[in-house]
Amino acid sequence: MTAVIRTRGLVKRYGRLRAVDGIDLDVRAGDVYGFLGANGSGKTTTVRMLLGLVLPTAGEVELLGGRMPRAGRRVLPRVGALVEGPAHHGHLSGRANLGLIDAAGPGGSRRTRRARIDEVLEQVGLGGIDRRPVRAYSLGMRQRLGLAAALLRRPELLVLDEPTNGLDPQGIHEIRDLLLELNRGGTTVFLSSHLLAEVEQLCTRVGVLDRGRLVLQDELARLTAPTGATVVDTPAADRVRAVLDGRVLGVEGSRVVVRGTDPAEVNALLVGAGVPVTGLALQRPTLEEVVLAAAGTSADRVEAVR
């Protein structure tokens, strides 16, 4: 599959501090890639290097097949980005801000500018935007406007750094739906976040950054695949051990983990022996458990907001 973002041995040092330490990112066409890490783990520094905003100390960056930052003039018009919060002219309206951004970029048609601005404002939930200056917007409205700016050129690649910052739960849900819709239309999404629940519901692949190092990179479905065990919920956990002697892997309160990948078979054995069963499911690790295992104790700063 075509690589959309590729880094090799990417390093950024600030004095003695290695903010990014030799990472090899692999983001493929069609991915919704979740770039996870605690605050201060190096995510934003990495994103800025991808976009040519910061030069790496060592290593290589390829974006849409072009070597950055040399290929920036050719590549960046095909990329939409929202990094470290949107920057706007506070005294102007949101619509006026988007007009300036569009006029400043290469390849934008003046004839279709108004229609394109209307379209992206509608996409991000600001279709009824008025003439208020941006300085009067809430943080969530500013975040939506920043995303609208990233969408103006119908990009092949969206690079987003904490795009749901400042949004309420309804706003997060709306932006998630929008990103999934864009992805279905062919846009590759690279999403930097410290919110595990956001990534778990949205992304197809994940990379985990811990203190500047990429400690995990894989398909989300593979990382959270069934473990080969079944979880039984029952008020009679002690009786499960007696019926399924040798298959019980662990007991925690009313939850019993049993070796086996056929919940129906486990249920039949227990019910046949008169053991009450209130719930059955294949055991799967959560993304939180995967991240904690990969990144260790520092991952407790990555939020599992649900």
Rank of each mutant, 00 (worst) to 15 (best):
R284C: 08
G207Y: 10
I175T: 03
G185T: 13
V4E: 13
T45P: 00
L158C: 05
R16M: 14
L82A: 07
E289L: 10
L92H: 13
I172F: 07
A273L: 02
R205G: 07
L98A: 02
L157Q: 07
A295Y: 13
L151T: 00
T112C: 10
V266L: 09
V27K: 04
V124S: 01
M1H: 08
V231D: 08
R301F: 11
M68V: 02
R284I: 03
V257Q: 07
R131N: 12
G99I: 12
T286L: 10
R247I: 04
R154M: 06
V159W: 04
L64E: 00
A104S: 11
L10R: 13
G212I: 11
V215M: 11
A148G: 02
V189S: 05
D233E: 15
G72V: 04
R284F: 07
E162C: 04
R284G: 10
G94A: 04
I101P: 02
L151W: 03
P226Y: 00
A29C: 09
L139V: 06
G40M: 00
T112N: 13
V302S: 06
L195F: 02
V206E: 09
G212A: 09
T188K: 05
R142E: 06
D21V: 01
K12R: 11
A96D: 14
L270I: 00
L98W: 11
R131F: 11
L282P: 14
T286N: 09
L82W: 01
T44N: 11
S192I: 06
D130E: 15
L53S: 04
D262F: 10
A229D: 14
P77W: 04
R74P: 01
P133Q: 12
A268R: 15
L92A: 13
A268N: 10
A293T: 15
Y14P: 12
Q170V: 12
P155D: 13
V206S: 03
I175R: 02
G66T: 11
G105S: 15
G272D: 08
R131I: 06
T286F: 09
I172D: 03
H173I: 11
D245A: 10
